[in-house]
Simulated assay, not measured.
Amino acid sequence: METARLRLRRFTPADAPALAAYRSDPEVSRYQSWESPVPSAEAERLAATLSAGDPRDPGWFQYAVERLDVPGLIGDVGVCRSDDGRQAELGFTFAPEFQGRGYASEAVARTVEFLLVKEGLHRVSAACDGRNVRSARLLERVGFRREGHLVRSTWIKGEWTDDVLFGLLASEYPARTRTRTRARKDGHGPP
């Protein structure tokens, strides 16, 4: 898949060093399930495993994200298809130097479009740690609605954390996305 600035593709073994670098950053791993640092050998195994998956099979498939102008891994978008293939959950992780530039929004929006329009899924969902305000805002920006807030529902890294739940139905897309974009341009929506 491509956007104006990005390519979402299958992982390759060559992605391992960049994967280890950004997943080892404590700020990147703060709201994620893995511990940092991520050793090179673990990143090599992970890149090899991720390169072998089928994006249409049930379960998780991780897309590597790179810029079109300068190839090289800048982040990843994960899609977890349900067993019946009608729904998916997504998640995303980006290297710190590529955050705040719209790359994650662009990659997530393209993935959502692919899943709901091209693949014909009924629904896409996402969840994030309640403290991860930037990820929550990104999900709302690309059209997701907040559907729930689970208080102290996940034990991770030695503490209970909240989960914020998001969803987007195919029947709402792209109308919900257009409404969010128009509201931002008019100054009536979140940035």
Rank of each mutant, 00 (worst) to 15 (best):
T179E: 15
T111Q: 06
T111I: 05
D15Y: 03
A4H: 12
Y63K: 04
S40A: 15
A47L: 05
P71G: 09
G100Y: 14
R101E: 12
V70I: 05
K157A: 08
D129R: 12
L46T: 15
E44R: 05
E97W: 00
A107T: 03
V164D: 11
R30G: 04
G102F: 00
D84V: 06
R134W: 01
V133M: 12
G53N: 01
Q62F: 10
V164H: 14
F92W: 07
R145F: 04
F98R: 00
G59S: 02
R137S: 13
V77W: 04
Y22D: 10
G120F: 09
A95L: 02
P37S: 07
G100N: 09
R184C: 06
L6H: 03
P58D: 06
T154R: 14
F114L: 14
Y103F: 14
A21D: 14
R56Y: 13
R176M: 08
V164T: 07
L138G: 03
V79A: 02
D69I: 01
R67T: 01
G120K: 09
T177L: 13
G100H: 10
L115S: 06
E106H: 10
R180C: 13
E172Y: 08
E89S: 14
F166G: 07
S105C: 09
V133P: 08
V108C: 05
D69G: 05
R178F: 11
Q87T: 13
G78T: 13
T181S: 12
V70F: 02
L116E: 12
V151T: 14
S29F: 05
A64T: 02
E119K: 02
S125V: 13
V133G: 10
E89Q: 13
G158Q: 03
N132Q: 06
S40R: 15
E97C: 03
G189H: 06
G75E: 00
H188F: 09
S125K: 07
E159S: 15
R137G: 13
V38G: 11
W34R: 11
D162Q: 12
V142I: 11
A126R: 02
E44T: 01
D15E: 04
A20F: 15
R110K: 13
V79E: 01
S33D: 14
A107C: 12
W160L: 09
R152W: 10
T154H: 03
A48R: 15
P190G: 15
G167T: 11
W160F: 13
G91E: 09
A16R: 01
V77C: 02
L46A: 13
P71C: 09
V133L: 15
A183N: 11
S29K: 02
R184K: 05
E27K: 10
E97Y: 01
P71F: 04
Y63E: 02
L121M: 04
V65G: 11
G130N: 06
A14L: 11
S33I: 03
G130S: 07
F98N: 02
T93V: 13
V108Y: 01
V151E: 15
L46N: 07
R134M: 11
S29Y: 04
S171I: 09
G78I: 09
R178I: 10
Q99N: 06
Q99F: 12
L8Q: 04
G148S: 10
G100F: 15
G91A: 11
R101C: 10
V79F: 01
T181G: 07
K118W: 03
S36H: 13
